[in-house]
Every structure is written in structure tokens, then in C-alpha cells.
């Protein structure tokens, strides 16, 4: 089992969630976050923005689904044909155990 943490533009959130649902990944947790990337934020004249709003989407998946979900997020969250700075990142980490509280048992 693996955890996919995708940081995407807030305006892409609904589209990403819709495509994830269509791809069979309906379950997701969404948190509003702020952050900056390796471009060190944005400078507009004298004003410097380094807490840029993003949306963090958490999805737990079975190992076999990994490439498919990454593909869906990459295709949906990218802006323009070549992409832009600030389109986001995807992190994947291992999950050892998952429990469903309503069933009181292990499993997604």
C-alpha cells in the first residue's frame, strides 16, 4: 500500500478530483496548504510572495495502481503543453497498515 501526496494548484483541485474519481480513485483527503518551490516564490516588483496557496491531495492506493494515479494527476494538474512553475509535485511514500474505522478492520 502506498500514499500519494499531490500538491496542485487550488484551481485545478476540482478537475483533479473529478478525474481521480473517473479513474476509480474516489476516496481522497484534501488540505489547503501554502508553500514555495525551488524558484523561491514569486517576486512582483517590490512585493515578494513565498507562501503561495496550494492544495494537498492525499490518496492511499494499492501498489499496482501507482503508475495509473500518477499519470492521471500529472495529466490533469499540468498547465499548458509544456507546464509551468507552480504546477505542483507528487510524493509517494509507503504505508504499512490501513484501517477502516467503520469496519474496525484492516484494509482500504
Amino acid at each position: 500500500m502506498q500514499f500519494v501526496r499531490a500538491i496542485v494548484r487550488p484551481e485545478k483541485k476540482d478537475e483533479v478530483l473529478e478525474n481521480l474519481s473517473a479513474g476509480g480513485f474516489n476516496a481522497a483527503t484534501v488540505v489547503d496548504v501554502v508553500g514555495r518551490g525551488k524558484q523561491k516564490g514569486i517576486r512582483m516588483g517590490d512585493v515578494y510572495y513565498d507562501e503561495i496557496p496550494k492544495t494537498l491531495i492525499l490518496v492511499a492506493i494499492e501498489d499496482a495502481d501507482r503508475d495509473r494515479i500518477v499519470d492521471i494527476i500529472l495529466k490533469t494538474a499540468k498547465t499548458g503543453p509544456s507546464g509551468n512553475f507552480g504546477d505542483g509535485k507528487i510524493f509517494i511514500s509507503p504505508v504499512e497498515e490501513a484501517y477502516t474505522i467503520s469496519k474496525g478492520a484492516k484494509g482500504l
Binding site: 500514499f3 476516496a27 492511499a60 511514500s93 509507503p94 504505508v95 497498515e97 474505522i101 467503520s102
Partner: peptide, 8 residues
């Protein structure tokens, strides 16, 4: 009711 994940 929610989910619990255990990660290293």
C-alpha cells in the same frame, strides 16, 4: 467514520 494509516 474515517481511516487510519500507519507509515514508517
Amino acid at each position: 467514520d474515517g481511516k487510519i494509516f500507519v507509515t514508517p
